[in-house]
Simulated scan of single mutants.
Amino acid sequence: MSAIGQCLVAFVFGSVVGLLVQRSRFCNTAALRDAILFKTYRNTKALLVAMMILTLGFTLFLTFGEGNPMHFDVGLNTFAGLFIFGVGMVLAGACTVSTWVKTGEGNVGALWALLFTFVGMFLFSLVWSVNYWPPAPASMTGEPNLEAFQLGYSNAATLQEKFGIPAIVFGVIQTGVLVLIYRAIRRKEEAQAERHRKSQAAHKDMQAQPAE
């Protein structure tokens, strides 16, 4: 496919995904925040379904498709970056995806959050390139390096190359775990609904009793 064709496909795909996110009000932050703080799981279930589809699709591509799959190092810097990014999402009240959507809707606060996302990325790139903030890129070779807090490559493609087991096998296992989590959430929702129904029934019974 030509570069123009790839751009057109990316534009159409991005537009469709953006429309779905905007209409569904999907947000990664809400998927975790609402489940923990408010015990509501609408976005959490949507996130799990998306993860199932992406996991199966990605590992199918790794197993049967063509291209250059990404290899990335996992280390202490990964966990630190994820933690800082998560704190930023909570403070901003939205993930990066929903921040883009809210910016498109005219939300000024989301615009500032999006702007400083890029500012932070730029400043971090300067720190990395000037000071080689540890662990240094030289230590990120794909092999475990405990002195530099690097665990090496860690994804389905790496496991497929190392053990000869198709990546789709790991994808199916991960998807199975996600299905179990989804079913556990559904059972919890059903229990909540049952308690709510009983509470309403008891309240109606109390109101129906004649006053003495």
Rank of each mutant, 00 (worst) to 15 (best):
V172P: 03
K39T: 02
N107K: 02
S98H: 04
S139Q: 05
M89I: 06
M140A: 13
T44H: 05
L48V: 15
G104Y: 01
Y153Q: 12
C95S: 04
Q150W: 01
L37M: 13
Q209D: 11
F79V: 08
M51E: 11
M1F: 08
S15D: 12
L47R: 03
M1G: 13
F64I: 08
V177T: 09
A94K: 02
A211C: 09
F116E: 07
V177R: 01
G88M: 03
T59E: 04
E143D: 12
N28A: 15
G57A: 14
E161P: 06
F79T: 06
V21L: 12
E161H: 09
M89V: 04
V74Y: 11
R25F: 02
Q22D: 14
P144D: 04
F11T: 14
V108I: 13
G5C: 04
M206Q: 11
A138S: 15
L123C: 12
S15M: 13
T175F: 02
R186I: 11
S15T: 14
V177I: 14
W133A: 15
F122H: 02
T59N: 07
W100P: 02
E161M: 07
V90F: 08
M70P: 14
I53T: 14
E194Y: 03
N131A: 15
A201R: 05
A202G: 09
L62T: 06
F170C: 10
D205A: 15
G67K: 04
V101K: 00
G120D: 01
N68F: 12
M140G: 04
Q6G: 14
W133Y: 11
L159D: 13
Q174N: 12
V130T: 15
A3S: 13
N155G: 14
D73M: 01
F26S: 12
T29Q: 05
P166Y: 01
L180N: 04
M121S: 13
L62E: 08
G142R: 00
G86N: 06
F149P: 07
V16D: 08
F83T: 10
L76K: 03
A110V: 00
A167C: 09
M140P: 03
G14V: 02
G152L: 01
W100F: 15
V119F: 03
G18S: 08
E189S: 10
L62A: 07
P69H: 07
F170K: 02
G14C: 05
P210C: 04
F163N: 13
V9D: 09
L111E: 08
A30K: 01
L54N: 11
F83E: 07
F116W: 02
N155D: 15
T55P: 04
G164N: 03
M89S: 09
G14Y: 02
L54M: 12
L115D: 09
L32P: 09
V172R: 00
Q192W: 03
L62Q: 08
L159R: 06
V87W: 06
N68S: 14
S125F: 02
R23H: 10
A167P: 05
Q150G: 10
L111H: 05
G106Q: 03
V179M: 13
A136N: 05
I36R: 04
A138W: 00
K204E: 12
L114R: 02
K39E: 06
L56S: 06
I165Q: 08
L19C: 10
F118M: 03
